[in-house]
């Protein structure tokens, strides 16, 4: 009977364009009806467990169920945590050994960077503006007083934490072989902590900071060889206008240049140097065998004395 059909259709077996569009659209509608619900069901199944999504797996490279492997990977595959080893000495987590002071120092540095950057939004390091900016912060900026207080007290706390960290490292003999070099990095970090604190002292441009910095930098006059009042300074033609104090202050008195220099050292120069040293410090903690203890006690008999 195909012939008959052919007769009835003017174009023979060839289906008309309209027909094709019709059936195509019908198929599309059908697929919407069947595929979308199926995909939706699939989607819901996936969303029930977001850890299987591509976005999630691209961020977190491993699963988080409680297996030793995943616990280790959680630390090792995280850029912020990877300075830690995967596992540590079971007694090293005891607070009584480390006092936590190194970590607290670093945390305070982060707090200071955070509050410091916020303070920089409101502060101009110029003689005309500086003191007014602090008044503005204290009285008008929302939470400005809290911000300044936090920066101030975190700075003092950091000095204390650094001292206590150093004290602990000394008392546990942690500077001994193989950590001699890292102790030296630590001493430099102590110096930079004090310098950071000291350069920040001048910035409010009040009497307290002005006279503290005046007293402090007056000592630089007396630097041997390089200060105009220091031993042998005059022999090297040092005057108040070319000696080391002049270099520090950018002038012969604590004034606008000193404020600007202090600001730049405080906000840019020293933090960069200190950050680099911190990177080295933390890196060396790991490379020198991790945290020093609590180690097994050594008896004098264990040591082979050189004859």
């Amino acid at each position: 009977m195909p012939d008959k059909d052919n007769d009835t259709k003017p174009n023979g077996n060839r289906v008309g364009l309209l027909e094709r569009v019709k059936s195509g659209v019908k198929e599309d509608v059908q697929s919407l009806k069947t595929d979308i619900p199926a995909k939706a069901k699939e989607q819901i199944d996936i969303l029930k467990d977001p850890t299987r999504t591509q976005v999630y797996t691209s961020i977190f490279r491993h699963k988080h169920d409680e297996t030793p492997r995943n616990r280790a990977l959680g630390v090792l595959s995280n850029v912020f945590l990877h300075l830690h080893p995967a596992k540590i000495n079971r007694d090293a987590v005891r607070y009584s050994y480390t006092w936590g002071m190194g970590g607290i120092t670093f945390y305070l540095f982060i707090v200071l960077t955070f509050t410091g950057v916020l303070l920089m939004f409101y502060y101009h390091p110029s003689k005309v503006q500086a003191f007014r900016d602090v008044l503005y912060l204290e009285h008008d900026v929302p939470f400005g007083k809290l911000l300044r207080n936090m920066h101030r007290w975190a700075a003092h706390l950091m000095v204390i934490a650094v001292w206590l960290h150093m004290f602990r490292v000394f008392l546990t003999g942690s500077y001994k072989k193989p950590r001699e070099f890292n102790w030296n990095i630590g001493v430099l970090l102590l110096v930079f902590t004090l310098l950071l604190s000291f350069t920040g002292y001048l910035l409010p441009d009040d009497q307290l900071g002005f006279w503290a910095v005046t007293v402090g930098t007056n000592m630089a006059r007396a630097t041997p060889l390089l200060g105009h009042e220091g031993p042998f300074g005059p022999l090297l033609h040092m005057t108040p206008y070319n000696d080391i104090r002049f270099g520090l202050l950018g002038g012969s008195i604590v004034d606008a240049n000193a404020l600007l220099r202090s600001y730049i050292w405080h906000c840019i120069g020293i933090p960069i140097v200190a950050s680099v040293l911190m990177i080295v410090h933390f890196w060396r903690v790991r490379k020198d065998g991790g945290i020093s203890g609590p180690a097994a006690v050594i008896l004098p008999g264990d040591i082979k004395e050189k004859k």
Binding site: P68, R71, A72, G74, V75, L81, H84, P85, A86, K87, I88, N89, R90, A92, V93
Partner: peptide, 10 residues
């Protein structure tokens, strides 16, 4: 002898 850093130290 050793414990995991996560969670015991972190």
């Amino acid at each position: 002898k050793e414990v995991h850093v996560w969670p015991f130290l972190l």
